[in-house]
Amino acid sequence: MTLAPPPIASAGTAAPAAVPPAAARQLRATARIAAVAAPSGASRLPVLDGAGPLALRRLASHDGAARVCVVGAMSAPVGGDRLRIEAAAGPGSDLRVTAAAATLALPGHHPGTARYDVALDVADGARLDWLPEPLITAAGSDLIQTTTVDLAASARLVLREEQVLGRAGEDTGRLTARLTVRRAGRVLLDQETAYGPGVPGWDTAAVLAGHRAVGQLLVVDPAYEEEPVPVRVLAAPDGAGEAVVTPLAGPAALVTAVAPDALAVRRLLDAAAIPTGW
């Protein structure tokens, strides 16, 4: 990764400080995680490389799974940053990834779209849980997020995505997020959400109807080939949000939820309690 130094303050210097080119002030960081199944059956982490604001912590595990927590050491991504996380679960391995805190997209000192790319790869017989905390888009932020998942035919996946549009009482920044899940070479799910200033129609009755938090929980399991998850409609008891559990056109279940805030979305996703075959 490259972490550029902050612009040099001009105070006390005779000549005006040169303004570094915009690219030099932007953060580029790629963090990498790889899990493999050891002969003992437990999963190991031969690769655990944090980068920039994406610090990685190995967590204790009691059941043979390899556990990693992504620790947000800085406020990122900000305008112009390019962050990337790659995680690979090798054949037969079991990798669980969580995060210590929400990711906050901020405007930064110079204009520009920030990028946050997540690339996940799950091999045959492996399982990956990708359970980060919400992404919060602060007012003035501008972020493109992509999440790309490649699953082998017998791979299993649990993936959660939550987007919170603005901090409390604040307008949202702009967010475009694409989630593409390929399984055995075929696209299982391809979805893009776009919210915020300059996105036509985002704050309407067809899309969010005033809700400010959106969440999805995706479970992919070859066992659903035989027995798809039944459709369920969920409503928050206090009327704060709604959700559905639906089978995709493939062995997967998806929960889609909208709610006024992050807490209500998480409650809906948790309430879905999708049965998994493992």
Binding site: V187, E192, A206, V207, L208, A209, V214, E242, T256, V258
Partner: peptide, 19 residues
């Protein structure tokens, strides 16, 4: 490839269609 095609989604259209 086909991935170049738009994939824009509307969460409430999905939820309310199923309701």
């Amino acid at each position: 490839g086909i991935g170049a095609l738009p994939a824009r989604s509307a969460p409430l259209l999905d939820i309310t269609a199923q309701q």
